[in-house]
């Protein structure tokens, strides 16, 4: 039996309604990356993580368990699981299973981004424990009632803190806030830009020339929905890195398979495997700009090729 769509979506929506995130994590896990960076609390411009990078190690631990359920007789117990989850936050236990090394890895990517912005003289703050998840997954799955209520909560959080500009770190959060929020939240007019756009506009210059050989994987959401295609290329062009374009790139990029991880894990892995092959043909190590792409392609590559977040390459070249 495939995984039960109704029960899984129910758990995600219940979590969003009751605990303000599809996979609620502790404030410590959400803000740990910022330790020691001395980022001011709040401000007119804030760096908004939307919790996606922080969630990946937990999603990874969870999806390993879910894949075991796929095609197993145990899928019938998901309904029971949904009822239990209403009273006990099951994500908490999944969080305990997440790899500490992986958490450090994803925290470092967020630190890279914050340090790059500092280097570019961008004046920004961070909302720390007040920051909420964006609601992106629930929107994609069409649970619009829950999403609408949550979007209002997120918009109120920004309003309460007097935020006028938001800098995002991943494509899903960028798209949700920039394109979807104005449809769901009356009067939402806060400027939203991805850190790649902000850095490209800043005129930041590299401090080191690097010799990395990269196969660049565009995110579907950045490229097709948010028109973020040229910015990462412009930032890389200054660094000396060799950028190889796969056959499907830019607006015609090929999905990493990640969006199917929660409902159809084996299909998700098949798509990721196809994409890894295309990226390998282009040559070099794979660079991604979305944490979901990163984890999907890394799993599919099984160590046959390095897969890194673009922020690691940029951090190295721009000296942060």
């Amino acid at each position: 039996m495939p995984l039960p769509t109704k029960d899984i979506l129910g758990i995600l929506a219940d979590n969003l309604n009751q605990r303000k995130s599809v996979l609620p994590i502790s404030s410590a896990a959400a803000t740990r990356w910022a330790k020691g960076l001395d980022l001011p609390k709040g401000g007119k411009t804030v760096l908004y993580t939307g919790h996606l990078y922080q969630l990946i190690p937990i999603i990874d631990a969870m999806s390993g368990q879910m894949a075991k359920f796929e095609d197993s007789a145990l899928t019938k117990y998901f309904g029971l699981g949904r009822n239990v989850n209403k009273f006990i936050n099951m994500t908490f236990f999944m969080g305990m299973m997440a790899s500490k090394d992986e958490q450090k890895d994803y925290d470092r990517m967020l630190r890279n981004i914050a340090l790059l912005l500092k280097k570019a003289d961008v004046d920004f703050g961070y909302l720390y424990g007040e920051e909420l998840y964006s609601g992106a997954l629930v929107y994609d799955e069409g649970v619009d009632g829950s999403f609408a209520k949550h979007a209002q909560r997120v918009a109120d959080m920004f309003k309460k803190n007097g935020v006028e500009k938001i800098i995002t770190v991943d494509p899903h959060t960028t798209h949700t806030l920039r394109t979807v929020f104005p449809e769901f939240v009356k009067g939402f007019d806060i400027e939203v830009k991805s850190y790649l756009e902000v850095l490209a506009e800043s005129g930041i210059e590299p401090t080191n020339q690097i010799t990395d050989d990269l196969s660049l994987h565009d995110s579907c959401v950045y490229a097709r929905h948010e028109n973020v295609v040229e910015q990462p290329r412009a930032l890389l062009a200054k660094t000396g890195a060799k950028v190889n374009e796969p056959r499907l790139c830019g607006k015609n990029t090929h999905c990493c398979g990640g969006p199917l991880e929660s409902l159809f894990p084996s299909e998700s892995h098949r798509i990721a495997g196809n994409r890894v092959e295309q990226l390998k043909e282009a040559g070099g190590s794979i660079a991604t700009m979305c944490p979901i792409c990163l984890v999907s392609l890394r799993k599919a590559a099984k160590g046959s090729v390095k897969v890194n977040d673009l922020s690691d390459t940029l951090a190295k070249a721009y000296g942060v």
């Binding site: 495939p2 769509t5 994609d140 799955e141 579907c220 959401v221 097709r224 929905h225 607006k251 015609n252 090929h254 999905c255 398979g257 969006p259 199917l260 409902l263 159809f264 299909e267 798509i271």
Partner: peptide, 17 residues
């Protein structure tokens, strides 16, 4: 076709082309 509907990646390759 419920499982087909939820197995769309929403990647947008179709709409782009």
């Amino acid at each position: 076709n419920i499982s087909t509907i939820y197995s769309c990646l929403l990647c947008g390759m179709c709409a782009e082309n």
